[in-house]
Design a protein around this nucleic acid. Sequence first.
RNA 1: GCCGAAGUGGCGGAAUGGUAGACGCGACAGUCUCAAAAACUGUUGGGGGGCAACCCCCGUGUCGGUUCGAAUCCGACCUUCGGCACCA
Length: 816
Amino acid sequence: MAQKYDPREIEKRWQQRWAADHIYEVKEDSSRPKFYALTMFPYTSGDLHIGHWYAMAPSDVYARFKRMQGYNVLHPMGFDAFGLPAENAAISRGIHPYEWTMRNIENMRRQLRSMGAIYDWNREVVTCLPEYYKWTQWFFLKFYHAGLAYRAKAPVNWCPRCQTVLANEQVVGEGFCERCSTPVTKKDLEQWFFRITKYAEELLDHSRLDWPERIKIMQKNWVGKSEGAEISFWLERQGIGQKEIRVFTTRPDTIFGVTFFLLAPEHPLVSQLTAPQHKAEVDEYIAWCRRQTEYERVALGREKTGVFLGSYVVNPLSGERVPIWITDYVLPSYGTGAVMAVPAHDERDLEFARKFKLPVRTVIAPPGWTGEELTEAYTGSGTMVNSEEFSGLPSEQGYEAICALLEKKGWGKRTVVYRLRDWLISRQRYWGAPIPIIYCDKCGIVPVPEKDLPVLLPPDAEFRPTGESPLKYCSSFVNTTCPKCSRPARRETDTMDTFMCSSWYFLRYTSPETRDAPFDAARIRYWLPVDLYTGGAEHAVMHLFYARFFIKALKDMGLVDFDEPFSRLFNQGTIIYRGDKMSKSRGNVIAPDEYVAKLGADAVRGYLMFIGPWELGGEWNDRGIVGISRWLNRVWILVTTEYASHTVDPDAERELLRSMHKTIKEVTGDIEKFRFNTMLSSLMEFSNYLSKVKESGVVSDSLWREAISYFLLLLAPTAPHLAEELWDRTGHPYSIHDQPWPEYDKELAKEEEITLVIQVNGKLRDKVLVPVSISEAEAKELALSRERVKAYIDGKKLTRVIYVPKRVVNIVVAPM
RNA sequence: GCCGAAGUGGCGGAAUGGUAGACGCGACAGUCUCAAAAACUGUUGGGGGGCAACCCCCGUGUCGGUUCGAAUCCGACCUUCGGCACCA
């Protein structure tokens, strides 16, 4: 009696053997082409759920496939280990973040091992360990010395009740504190920034990247490039040290339609431009704005607000005097924080004008305009009117003419503005890499010397229930001496955004043991850039964007010789369970462990890939997985029970060879396209077919053995344990995972006969099996002579006969 | 509001200009069994006709169009999901 398929026993045994033999250890090898297949590393939340497996199992299949194709494949794994949840655990449960994180890593490593991936654990990277974050700090210093890091005041999320800074993730719903549900406000603090805006233009260039179109579009929108002009409006009032205020506009051609002028409430000239009799009202408005939450301020469909300052600017082209207002819809951080308002041609300005009864003047005539008042803002192009000497020009020409005039007179210039802001990397938290800066009363801002790195997190910090940064109150950490003058000094207590850690982890995988540098330069040259990066689309504009910036900056510093980290990007979809994205906080996670224990990792891997196209994600279904499990079981029986050849039928042999080569072709193509669902369908069809062949026993023993071994090779990336076991049991040398990927023979894969479909007026009327070699004339003649077709064409006029080789004959008839 | 993706049996999905529903789940029927489960075999889009082998009509979110032929291409719309959102 044959042994039963016991995935638990098989998987454990092979995982141990592979580990003992180090078969997945990766060495640099210049004789083979390299392939760096990277999967986004997980955050150390504690448990991997099925969503993580959905990201990791198919990418492991792809990496295994490349490996069998002869590439030297680096497919590493590590842990994104700094971050807020660890600190929250410390506050609520009294566990130190380090302990909480390391315990979680322990468990996640166990889960990852059970998946049977080709991760080389010698290359593991953990971002919260000093040997890693030392280099995160080192990079900070590099950026600092390159002039890419600076300190500035910036608003942070502030909970007035907890008296503490909140990270964006701690602001929940419509702008409330996660802990006490108080509306969150803004508070200005000195913080560290990275000058990512310096790379805005370069970051727009995706031309050499094989990335999904939608991610590129999201990044483009994030950069938000706008071309326009900067124009100076003259200040009427003298004696305030400045004669003009500059605005940015994308529509200089509408300048004759300016009927009022807007400043952000935060604009530095507001107080000087406020007339005494308006001061009280202006102060009150500014105070009101400050009380607004970010969410309220930016909420759409909100009524426009603002106050008149009591002063005026002069339009440089028309010489017209227009009133200055302040309003919160003008953002201080975009453009110049000042706007020339053209209500006739801007929706927001029109709303504002209507609310405050300000004049509206049409200066761009829409096609067919006859001088009536516009009912809504016209933002398109048209003919310029009411624009002095520019009247009559098409607005596109007017744009150019006005820019030229402004530049000639020195009143303005063409310019480009980006929505992208500099990257705020300061976090007022404990569980992150400390920013290696010291403040000295005498020397000012002093970077920690490289030799003193890492600046270690103090293990004895106190975690307060309010969530205030423990570093701030940890005197052993804060108090230090100035590296320059040796006097008492204070350490920076902010830590770095975790996106800093994930901006370079893929470099560290190449040489995690390197002590004297963040990475080994020669190995970086060998492995980088990453050939294929896979992960969730939620990182489209944060992680992926920061990492690109990071690498571009390193390139300019001469630390690496490439300027894009990820040549190809692929986003898998999301696994849904009970109508929602799987997450711990939603309480709808499916743990892989019980399925692995019951049905085996191979079944879980297979089922996840069978759900549908990888990029679409899908709903986890408890019942669906048994289909894969049953199939693996049938494969087991197919291969482990003996084959008995009765007769050898050459036609059957040819048919088996054809089927085999067709399957190789399809499986190879599907993996390349990440179509793992149809890859599995092909494998199933082939195994179903093999079962039929086995029943009839019409092929030779040797051909049967060959077919089985090819089948196992194709199955190996998907079900690595089962394939290895069956490879072993069919007498092949260890290991199947060191075998070359099979190649198909075009000639053998070719069909000999095809089903020719015969249509009349596009409707299917008959089918006939014909040799592939059939000629067009033969096919047409055959189609017209078919009994069933005649019934539809007799008595009609034959107008055309269309032949599509190997597919269809369509007979077109018309009534007589 | 803008940008992007997607709508196909009871369900997941296949087919990206040429046989709609591959493969799998579920359901139904059968084999085995005292019985049940498991396993295996068969049937399974809807409607209609025939004793039958079979045959006909309809059918890929909606409405139009292009084409000999459309799930697939084009136009308008509806729905769902993701992202951005007062950026001058």
